[in-house]
């Protein structure tokens, strides 16, 4: 940070979308990424729930960062994160019971999503409120986007629908495997390849040999 100019709030927001994308680059939060992406709706709901928790915990942690002694910092973070997750859990159940059922235990499991504690420890605990908000929002949207890319592929191929709307004529035989657990692994693996290839090309273009 010595030679280049300090990152702006916009930079903190942008980095989560692509350069430090939590799923494809940092390989964090794999459990929900694979588990709830069998339909696009579930993927978006999970992404938004995680984004909410991420933003709130980043905000809260950044706001209290000066008052928290180092020894109890992780405990305090987890306490805050668990609180926001509980709130989200009840909110989803109040908004839509079927959605709450579809996401199941994975809403509560946001607590142990490494992305959230990771951002708290690596960013929000050391930075002012505004950049922390941008960081949380960027990471959250990057996470939602990654989930959506998986959810769309799996739903279109596995059920022949997108957001519940049928895309193909009735003769289309859906690839059932895509909505099964195995399909989650395969889809993520394929996307990883695509992103690796894209990033490699980008690097090759920016550093002429």
């Amino acid at each position: 940070m010595s030679s280049s100019s300090p990152p702006t709030t916009t930079d903190e927001f942008i980095k989560g979308l692509w350069r430090e994308n939590p799923v494809f680059v940092q390989v964090l939060g794999m459990c929900p990424t694979l588990a709830v992406t069998n339909s696009a709706v579930n993927a978006v709901a999970m992404g938004l729930a995680t984004t909410f928790v991420l933003v709130m915990s980043n905000l809260a942690i950044s706001a209290i960062r000066r008052f928290v002694p180092k020894q109890v910092r992780i405990v305090t973070y987890i306490l805050l994160i668990a609180t926001f997750v509980t709130v989200v859990d009840y909110a989803i159940a109040a908004i839509s019971l079927p959605l709450h059922k579809a996401l199941g235990a994975f809403i509560s499991l946001i607590v142990v999503n490494c992305i959230i504690l990771g951002r708290a420890e690596a960013f929000a605990g050391k930075n002012p409120i505004l950049p922390s908000l941008a960081d949380g929002l960027g990471m959250g949207i990057g996470f939602t986007g990654a989930l959506l890319t998986l959810g769309v592929v799996r739903e279109v191929l596995g059920m022949g629908t997108l957001f519940g709307v049928a895309l193909f004529p009735a003769a289309f035989q859906p690839w059932v495997i895509m909505v099964l657990p195995a399909g989650g692994f395969f889809t993520l693996s394929a996307w990883m390849l695509v992103f690796n290839a894209l990033r490699r090309r980008q690097r090759a273009l920016s550093e002429p040999a």
Binding site: I64, F67, V68, P69, Q71, V72, V75, T76, L79, L80
Partner: peptide
């Protein structure tokens, strides 16, 4: 400080 933080957060 530790007690204050934990009780406050709780």
């Amino acid at each position: 400080a530790m007690t204050r933080t934990l009780v406050g957060a709780g």
